Lab assay of single mutants.
Amino acid sequence: KKKYVIKVYFEDTGKEVEIEAESKEEALEAAKRLAEELGLKIKKVEIYP
């Protein structure tokens, strides 16, 4: 089964997080949740198959 690796870059902090997920949708949801939890804004998202 294919996994996606999503790199999320946050504004202000210069922080980046990698998330593995089964689908792009799932990964983007996780990225949004994470940003909310951390109180950060997402600057850029890169998706690698």
Results as ranks from 00 to 15, higher is better:
Glu37Cys: 04
Ile42Arg: 00
Leu38Met: 12
Val45Ser: 02
Lys24Arg: 10
Thr13Leu: 11
Lys2Cys: 15
Ala35Phe: 03
Arg33Met: 09
Glu46Lys: 06
Ile6Val: 08
Lys44Cys: 06
Glu22Gln: 07
Gly14Tyr: 15
Val17Lys: 08
Glu18Phe: 05
Thr13Gly: 08
Leu38Trp: 06
Asp12Leu: 13
Gly14Ile: 15
Lys41Arg: 15
Val17Arg: 09
Tyr9Leu: 06
Glu36Pro: 01
Arg33Pro: 00
Arg33His: 11
Lys7His: 06
Ala21Asp: 02
Val45Ala: 03
Arg33Phe: 04
Ala31Leu: 03
Lys44Val: 07
Glu36Ala: 10
Tyr48Gly: 04
Glu36Lys: 12
Ala30Ile: 14
Lys41Val: 14
Ala31Asn: 00
Lys15Phe: 06
Glu46Ser: 04
Glu36His: 12
Lys43Leu: 10
Leu34Met: 15
Lys7Asn: 03
Tyr4Lys: 01
Ile19Tyr: 10
Tyr48Glu: 06
Glu26Cys: 09
Leu34Ala: 08
Tyr4Leu: 08
Lys1Ser: 07
Lys44Asp: 05
Gly39Gln: 06
Ile42Ala: 01
Val17Asp: 03
Tyr48Phe: 14
Ser23Phe: 09
Leu40Cys: 03
Glu37Met: 05
Ala31His: 00
Gly39Val: 02
Lys7Gly: 01
Glu25Val: 10
Val17Ile: 12
Lys1Val: 12
Ile6Trp: 05
Lys7Leu: 07
Glu29Met: 07
Gly14Arg: 06
Arg33Glu: 04
Tyr9Ala: 03
Ile47Ser: 03
Lys43Asn: 14
Leu38Lys: 04
Lys44Ile: 11
Glu11Ile: 12
Lys41His: 09
Ile42Lys: 00
Leu28Lys: 06
Tyr48Thr: 07
Ala30Lys: 12
Asp12Ile: 14
Lys44Met: 11
Ala31Cys: 03
Lys41Pro: 15
Glu37Ile: 11
Ser23Leu: 04
Glu25Asn: 06
Val5Tyr: 12
Lys43Pro: 01
Phe10Tyr: 03
Lys24Phe: 06
Ile47His: 08
Ala35Arg: 01
Glu26Ile: 07
Val8Ala: 02
Ala21Cys: 08
Lys32Glu: 10
Val8Met: 04
Ile6Tyr: 09
Ala21Gln: 03
Glu29Gly: 05
Ile47Met: 10
Lys43Trp: 12
Leu38Ala: 06
Lys2Pro: 09
Leu38Phe: 07
Ala27Gly: 15
Tyr48Ser: 05
Ala31Gln: 01
Lys41Leu: 13
Lys7Val: 10
Lys1Cys: 15
Glu20Lys: 11
Phe10Pro: 00
Lys15Gly: 06
Ser23Thr: 14
Lys24Ser: 11
Ile47Asn: 02
Gly14Val: 14
Gly14Leu: 11
Glu11Phe: 13
Asp12Gly: 14
Phe10His: 00
Lys7Glu: 01
Lys2Ile: 12
Leu34Arg: 09
Glu22Thr: 08
Gly14Trp: 15
Gly39Thr: 02
Glu29Cys: 14
Glu25Tyr: 13
Ile6Asp: 00
Ala27Thr: 02
Glu26Pro: 01
Glu46His: 13
Ser23Pro: 00
Glu22Gly: 07
Lys44Ser: 12
Phe10Arg: 00
Lys7Arg: 15
Lys32Thr: 10
Ala27Phe: 02
Val45Asn: 01
Glu46Ile: 10
Gly14Ser: 15
Glu20Thr: 08
Pro49Trp: 09
Lys15Trp: 05
Glu11Met: 15
Val45Phe: 09
Leu34Gly: 01
Leu40Ile: 03
Pro49Gly: 05
Val8Gly: 00
Glu36Thr: 13
Lys44Asn: 13
Glu16Gln: 08
Val8Ile: 15
Val17Cys: 11
Ala27Ser: 04
Lys2Leu: 14
Glu25Ala: 05
Glu20Val: 12
Lys15Ala: 07
Phe10Thr: 01
Ile6Glu: 00
Glu46Leu: 08
Ala27Leu: 09
Lys41Met: 08
Leu40Met: 07
Glu22His: 12
Leu28Tyr: 14
Asp12Arg: 10
Ile47Arg: 02
Lys2Tyr: 07
Gly39Tyr: 02
Lys2His: 15
Tyr4Ile: 08
Tyr9Trp: 15
Ala35Ile: 02
Glu16Trp: 13
Leu38Val: 05
Pro49Phe: 08
Lys24Val: 11
Glu36Val: 14
